[in-house]
C-alpha cells in the first residue's frame, strides 16, 4: 500500500521501545490515521535484539513488513541499526542513538562489537545521530532516553506539528515522570537539526 508509512523501532530488550511506540501510536490515532503495530514478547525480551513495527495511513493491511520497505528506523542501540538496515527503503531515514550495548556473545568473548556502525548508516542513508543517553543523563534519568529518541524521530519525519505531542506524552507516561519526559521530548526535537 503506497500511502502507508512504516517505521521500525529496534533495540535491546528492556530499552523502552514499546513505550516510545505507544506514544507515537496515540498521536497517530489522534491525527485520524489507521494504525497497526507489531511487537514480539517472550524470550527475546531477555536482553535480546527486539523490534517493534508501526504502520499508519488511510488503511493499513499488514502489521509487519519485510526487507526494503521501512520509511524510518529508530535504533535505540547503534549495532541494532545495522542489523535492521535491510528493512529500510533506499531513501529511508535513520535516527540512531549513539549508544553501545555489548551482546552476551560479545561479553563472552565469542565475537567483537563491529566497528563503524554509525559511519555505515550515515554513508548509505539519511541519518540522524542522537546522543540520547548523554542527553537523558543530563536531564537526570537515563531511562528517558526513549522519549529523547521519540522527539528526534518526530522531527526527522517532519511530524512535530501533526498533533500536540506534549499533550500526548503527558497522557501516556506516568504522572511522576511527566516533566522529565516532556524535557526529554524537547531535547530530542532540538537534537535533530531542521
Amino acid at each position: 500500500m503506497s500511502n502507508v508509512r512504516s517505521m521500525l523501532l529496534v533495540g535491546v530488550g528492556g530499552q523502552g521501545a514499546i513505550l516510545t511506540a505507544k506514544v507515537l501510536v496515540a498521536g497517530l490515532m489522534e491525527a485520524g490515521y489507521d494504525v497497526k503495530m507489531s511487537e514480539v514478547h517472550g524470550m527475546s525480551q531477555r536482553g535480546g535484539s527486539v523490534s517493534t513495527q508501526v504502520h499508519w495511513g488511510e488503511k493499513v493491511n499488514s502489521p509487519v513488513i519485510g526487507k526494503g520497505a521501512a520509511d524510518l528506523i529508530v535504533a535505540f542501540e547503534k549495532m541494532e541499526a545495522v542489523r535492521y538496515a535491510d528493512y529500510l527503503k533506499p531513501d529511508g531515514i535513520v535516527v540512531v542513538n549513539d549508544y553501545e550495548i555489548a551482546s552476551s556473545s560479545i561479553a563472552a568473548g565469542l565475537c567483537e562489537y563491529p566497528e563503524g556502525c554509525l559511519e555505515a548508516m550515515q554513508k548509505n542513508y539519511k541519518c540522524y545521530v542522537v546522543k540520547a543517553a548523554e542527553i537523558a543523563e543530563s536531564l537526570g534519568n537515563t531511562r528517558c532516553m526513549n522519549i529523547v529518541l521519540f522527539g528526534s524521530l518526530v522531527k526527522a519525519l517532519g511530524m512535530d506539528t501533526m498533533v500536540d505531542w506534549e499533550d500526548v506524552i503527558s497522557r501516556t507516561v506516568p504522572e511522576k515522570f511527566r516533566e522529565l519526559n516532556l524535557n526529554a521530548y524537547r531535547a530530542g526535537l532540538s537534537a535533530v537539526a531542521s
Partner: peptide, 19 residues
C-alpha cells in the same frame, strides 16, 4: 526482490541471556 543496500558492516548476534 527487495531493494537492499549492502552497507558493509555486519551486526553480530544478540541472543537473549539470563538477566
Amino acid at each position: 526482490t527487495a531493494p537492499v543496500t549492502d552497507i558493509g558492516v555486519k551486526a553480530v548476534s544478540r541472543p537473549p541471556a539470563l538477566c
